[in-house]
Design a protein around this nucleic acid. Structure first.
Lengths: 324, 324
DNA sequence: CTGAAAGCGCTTACAG
DNA sequence: CTGAAAGCGCTTACAG
């Protein structure tokens, strides 16, 4: 059996109250007692049970993270930064992969509530989440609107879409096509599309947006795009995986990049920079997003609901490779 | 305040014992009572506190996962599968990114112990972990030996190294160079190198292994390789990120692939398949590895230490692209 | 400077 | 079929 605080107390010859005080560095304890307690803890290899502590304190220092899929470079990197910052601040992270399925998100949320997490960071398309807000659970959303009460942190999607489009126009592209995820979803990612469309119109160009099915094999959709848009000389993909699929299709068709077709992606993760450094892309500041999301969440956890910024958009950066 | 079991009991007009019974579907309870209890729970939006439950049961259904970095496609994918399977089996996952630093691994391990996790899955190079085994904490290692008592699950690294080398030889390569991580680490990944060296010798070829620094910018090391090995016509990289860096360097130097240089990697994650589908690589069965690791861990958690397989190596697959 | 007691929110023998 | 009591391993007023 694992030793508990009473075992330590017995060996040190004090009460468990005193052991607890030593553990928490609270109140006055004589140096001698302290030493004896420490020695006893060492002797029997004692580690306090955080479950019991959390139960009493009504504070677990547990944060739940709900993302679609940590296999995806963007979310994997996000999870890394969020976990690292949490640890640094004394919080622990419960990882949840929702696959963007509403039923899974709901189950995860219930699990997190049962486990008494202090707060949740979520990347989700489903507004349903907000129903749980009556639980008084602090939530911060990343990159996707949830409700009017839940703070959102993300990259400046409009600026990103603008930069991407202007870059292609500046390189002389006349027929730029945009590829995006499902358009009916109310996400700031759609601001990338909005920016693209606005800029195109400003330049007297006709915007054309293709919609790829959600997190699936894009290849078919992209192949169709190549068939239907033989004049396309620029493609702005709303994420780097889509952009990579475009490059693959272009190669297959012998369409030289960047001379006959220029391609720009979005996200700019470390993984993409390693595996496909030639890709021009709009880089999201994943670490800053993580930092900001945690700052806001912890403020809410500490009961400071006053000036929670409801929308925070951090600046993006153009990473120019050889595909433009 | 969050409602507790007594609040439910009061509303339903029963004792908390009865509510607990309904919650756990245990013992005989009249249908009427059950209904009343369920209605009361719904009414006040009650969710049981798993902390209290775990404290009593001495079972948290919590698993700790220690990986170097979820940003890395291989570990991100591993985390995804492990989390998914855990959830499916009613377990929750605490994510820890160790950056392969021993001090971090130790801190994480202590944190996991304090949080009463039922078991730990770890990808680590540090044997120190085994010191904690006296805590009686079930641990399964992935891909790296920890000690004689800790089961390891991984891909068949020797077979992988063999297949990679034979593929290059079969394609007519005469001067094959291998690139691996730090060689002093006792890891099964070194079996990839061992296989490479064995096969080379079998074919009367001189093995040449380059060692890249740990999870750093490989580019410099690879550039040196190109300088020092101008005759190299085949490179077997011990992971896909290294292989990608080789491709980048070759491109920079105008060395055509695969005509003048053939390259094969290792891992074959979904991300690499999406971003760099042209890369020939040895694919690890990440899902099977995850499944197996969890099977073994849960067996140990359930106290069945009898026939825990100490070493499990799952078959790898050649994914042939255009770099060979 | 130190200890006895109550309580965090559950579950489980035990008794009826 | 249901309830009172004890206990999981802690922490914190309160008292001395």
């Amino acid at each position: 059996m694992k030793p508990n605080i009473h075992d330590v107390a017995k060996i040190a010859g004090v009460s468990s109250t005193t052991v607890s005080r030593v553990l928490n560095n609270r109140g006055y304890i004589s140096e001698k007692t302290k030493e004896r307690v420490y020695k006893a803890m060492e002797e029997i290899n004692y580690f306090p049970n955080d479950l019991a502590r959390s139960l009493f304190r009504k504070r677990t220092n547990l944060i739940g993270l709900i993302i679609p899929n940590s296999s995806n470079p963007f979310f994997g990197e996000l999870a890394f930064h969020i976990e690292s910052i949490c640890t640094q601040k004394g919080y622990k992270l419960l990882l949840c992969n929702s696959l963007n399925r509403k039923d899974k998100e709901e189950k995860y949320l219930e699990m997190l509530i049962r486990n008494q997490v202090d707060g949740v960071i979520a990347v989700t398309f489903n507004r349903g989440i907000l129903d749980y807000h009556k639980q008084n659970l602090p939530i911060v959303a990343i990159d996707h609107y949830l409700s009017n009460h839940i703070p959102v942190v993300g990259s400046d999607n409009y600026a990103g879409g603008k930069k991407a489009t202007e870059l292609l126009l500046g390189k002389g592209c006349k027929h730029i096509v945009h590829i995006n995820g499902p358009l009916e979803l109310e996400t700031p990612a759609n601001l990338r599309r909005k920016a693209y469309e606005d800029i195109m119109k400003e330049h007297g160009r006709q915007p054309v947006t293709y919609e790829v099915p959600f997190h699936q094999n894009y290849q078919e959709c992209i192949s169709r795009l190549f068939d239907e848009q033989p004049n396309a000389d620029g493609i702005f993909a709303s994420d780097d995986l889509i952009a990579a699929a475009v490059l693959t299709e272009a190669k297959k068709r012998g369409k030289d990049i960047p001379s006959r077709l220029k391609v720009i992606g979005y996200d700019g993760t470390e993984t993409v920079q390693s595996l496909l450094p030639s890709l021009t892309t709009i880089q999201q500041p994943i670490q800053s997003i993580s930092q900001k999301a945690i700052d806001i969440l912890l403020k809410a956890v500490d009961g400071d609901f006053n000036d929670l910024p409801l929308e925070t958009y951090l600046p993006v950066k153009v990473l120019e490779g050889e595909t433009t």
